[in-house]
Amino acid sequence: MFSRILTSALFAGAAAGLIAALLQFVFVQPVLLHAELYESGELVHFGAEAVSARPELPGLFADPMRDGLSVVFTMFTYTGYALVMVALMSMAEKMGHAVTTRAGLLWGLAGFITFHFAPGLSLAPEVPGVAAADVEVRQIWWTATVAATGVAMWLIAFGGNAMAYGAAALLLLAPHLIGAPEPESFSGPVPTELGALFAARAFGVGMAAWVLLGGFAGYFWQTESKRADAHA
């Protein structure tokens, strides 16, 4: 059982992580590198003179070490997500719910909402250089929000009664009604255009990668189960 979870999660996580890394290079990394020019003070806006919105940016893979580490860590991160998701898929299957590639797409969407969208709704994906509250406080809020949203997603999918849906709604709302830790003052040097684009791109790439992760996880879970059955 454990090896089946492990194998499915490793395949799904590595594949989705690699795709996520490539999507991030094309859509997110240029915005991040652009913002870092403002973070480092190389570019300054708010001045009397207009600043070009198209500065010279280092190309893709200009810094192989940095980009290579990003690929490794993205695959690592998505493998972590996959382990959690496939383990929960195995539990759902035990409860009699079919786990297929198609169902996996919904699992992926629920995972995206849990790990990326819900915490990001009040703690927007940060472009480098923005003002933010203490990192420890934000991590506590992030973790609590992911936990609450994850339970809510499970209740919506498998709860099956009004009580469960009501509890799910409360769990979804609570972190945002309580509110995420916010900075005391705004000091970010990065143009708001870049910050907004970064958050939107981070969400978009995250959603694509997560939906793929769910589909892959459902697919590999099925194939691994068939293989295990054939051996049994």
């Binding site: 990003s70 990326h116 703690l123 994906p125 940060e126 981070a202």
Partner: peptide, 11 residues
């Protein structure tokens, strides 16, 4: 870069 792009609190 991954932490920023994946929406983890960073710094």
């Amino acid at each position: 870069d991954v932490r920023h792009a994946t929406g983890f609190p960073c710094h």
